[in-house]
């Protein structure tokens, strides 16, 4: 009896927790279909597809989305490359100073975003000349790569630690040199880990507001656009873009896990 109650209470609780997690996402999507009277999109007035049809009618919105995607793409590419190399070194090799290095790499993750942003601002102001100053897309990019590197290292390393070294030894026994072994054996095996890290880096970059706010200057990314428009009322088009981001991310993850399952 007690057990039955326990199990069902847990079930009901889980249901509630899921509603709690998904409610804001639902609200964001819902209000992209709203037809508000003025600029303030808070109360449900009526259903319309107008904002989806005129997705980029709001001046500056399209530009901000393009800037965000560009920064996310480049920062992911660079951070994932640097991070993967470092993760390989940390997992595959024993060397002096390894524990210290691990700790050092953990530090940026333990630093609140606001401090990362503020210290980068101080640096850029102190350098005081191009390309670091005036603040621009390049400085945002540097900031994003900085916070992404540690995330990539941690993610790739977690995936690498379950790696079976005997596969590489087998490859070497079969006469492959180090380079061949890496590309034919090691790389395909760690690729899912790299992809996961890349996905994480991309989503962190495209959604970052706090650090970007410090390092952006006049450049407007999508989150900065949201912040700015929040003062006068977020237009439904912004909700629509948010919804598109969500659907794309969900699809990417779904496809990724499908491919991985098929491979396995």
């Amino acid at each position: 009896m007690l057990r039955w109650l326990g199990r069902n209470a847990l079930r009901a609780y889980t249901g509630l927790a899921l509603v709690y997690l998904l409610l804001p996402i639902f609200i964001v999507a819902l209000f992209s279909f709203n037809d508000p009277v003025g600029k303030t999109n808070y109360t449900w007035v009526g259903f319309t597809l107008d904002h989806w049809a005129n997705l980029f009618a709001i001046p500056g919105l399209l530009d901000s989305v393009i800037v965000s995607i560009r920064i996310a793409f480049i920062s992911t590419l660079i951070a994932t490359t640097l991070g993967t190399l470092a993760a390989l070194a940390l997992v595959r090799y024993q060397f002096r100073g390894r524990p210290g290095t691990s700790l050092f790499i953990f530090l940026p993750l333990a630093t609140p975003e606001i401090i990362l942003g503020a210290s980068l601002l101080t640096l850029f102001v102190a350098i005081g000349r191009p390309p670091f100053f005036p603040l621009n897309e390049f400085t945002i990019l540097i900031a994003h790569i900085t916070f992404n590197i540690s995330y990539v290292i941690v993610t790739v390393r977690a995936r690498l630690s379950g790696f079976d070294r005997r596969l590489e030894e087998a490859s070497a026994d079969l006469g492959a040199d180090g380079w061949q072994t890496f590309w034919r054996v090691t790389f395909p095996l760690i690729l899912p880990g790299i992809a996961a890290a890349g996905l994480l880096a991309f989503s962190l970059s495209i959604d970052d507001f706090v650090i970007t706010n410090f390092t952006a200057g006049r450049t407007t990314t999508f989150p900065m656009f949201v912040w700015g428009s929040a003062r006068v009322g977020v237009p439904p088009q912004v909700n629509a873009i948010g919804t598109i981001f969500f659907v794309v991310a969900v699809s990417a993850v779904a496809i990724g896990s499908f491919l991985q399952r098929r491979r396995a």
Binding site: V125, G128, R129, P134, G217
Partner: peptide, 24 residues
Amino acid sequence: EAINDNDSFFGTIQAPLKAGEDAG
């Protein structure tokens, strides 16, 4: 519509202007 109040806008342009740069 970049200006929400004078101080915070000044905060965004002061650094380049101080450095003699185009504030954008």
